[in-house]
Structures are given as C-alpha cells and as structure tokens.
Amino acid sequence: MLTITEAAVGQVKTMMADDDDAKYLRIGVQGGGCSGLSYVMGFDTEINEEDKHLEIEGLEVVVEKENIPMLEGVKIDYKQNMMGGGFTIDNPNAIANCGCGSSFRTATNEGTPEEC
C-alpha cells in the first residue's frame, strides 16, 4: 500500500520514543491547502474500526480506510541537510501539487482548496 523508507522509520521511532502516548503512526489526508488535500501524520494510541493496520519495518502504522485510495503507492522518506531535516512524500496519485509540496489533488478527489 505505502512505503516508508528506513530513514523515515528511524526518525519516526526516535520521535515516538520521546512521546509516552505514541503507540501508532497515523497517516492520513484531509481537505485543505492550495491544491485541495493535505497530508496528515501524527501519533495515536488506538486503532479504530475504520482503520487499516500496517507494520512497516517494525513501525505500527494506521490509515483510515477511506484514505487508502489517495495513499496507494505513496513513498515517505526523511531527508537531513544543513538546514535541518524533514519528511518528504512522493504520491503517484497526485495530478497537481502546490508549490510548497504539502498539498495535492488526485484525479478522483479535489478536496477543498484554500486560497493561497
């Protein structure tokens, strides 16, 4: 369904170690951003009925089932440079991205674009 690189898994595990409530990495999509849809990543303590549970490189990941079509084939990476580090998301389903790369839209879901 989705790929999380070794570098990204390592960074998430480091971040989770500092958060007592972090049991799962939750990845999702919500309306917003210049292109209509924005990625959401955060920690959660439980799995809901509407979630799909994945294990990637020992990392427990949950994704709402309704978000799966928009995240199919996504690759999440973590890159470090002189200015710091950050996660990158490569989504083969995106037909348009905003300039900053934090929002997108797909052929089947325009989301709710915000004026930028």
Rank of each mutant, 00 (worst) to 15 (best):
M70C: 06
E114Q: 12
D44N: 13
S103L: 00
G85W: 07
S103I: 00
V12N: 05
E46C: 00
I4P: 08
E66T: 12
I47S: 10
N48I: 00
D21C: 02
D18Q: 15
T5D: 11
A7D: 15
P92C: 10
T45C: 01
N91L: 02
I76L: 09
N93E: 09
S102C: 07
D90H: 10
G111Q: 12
L71R: 05
F104E: 06
P113A: 10
A96W: 02
G32T: 10
A96Y: 02
Y39L: 02
N97K: 14
K79V: 15
L71Q: 10
A8G: 07
M16G: 01
A94S: 12
E66R: 13
T108F: 13
G31V: 01
G101F: 00
D44T: 11
G10Y: 04
M16Y: 01
C116A: 11
P92F: 02
V12Y: 12
G28H: 05
K79L: 13
A8L: 09
E114R: 07
G32Y: 11
S35L: 00
E115C: 06
A107S: 15
I89T: 06
V9L: 09
G42T: 11
L54M: 14
K13W: 00
D51N: 12
L2W: 05
A17D: 12
V29D: 08
L25E: 08
G36R: 04
L59Y: 10
E60H: 13
E55I: 13
D77Y: 09
D44V: 05
G10D: 14
V63R: 08
S38D: 09
E55N: 14
G85A: 04
Q11P: 01
I47T: 11
G32F: 04
I56F: 09
E114I: 07
D44C: 03
V63F: 07
I27W: 07
T108H: 10
G85Q: 08
T112E: 14
N97V: 08
I68A: 01
T106W: 00
G73F: 01
G85Y: 05
I56Y: 06
G86P: 03
E110A: 12
V29Y: 02
L2E: 03
V74E: 01
S102V: 14
F87L: 01
V62Y: 12
K13E: 03
P113T: 03
R105L: 03
D51G: 06
E6G: 09
M15H: 04
E66C: 02
E72K: 14
D19V: 12
V9R: 07
G42R: 10
T3M: 05
R105E: 12
L59E: 03
G32L: 08
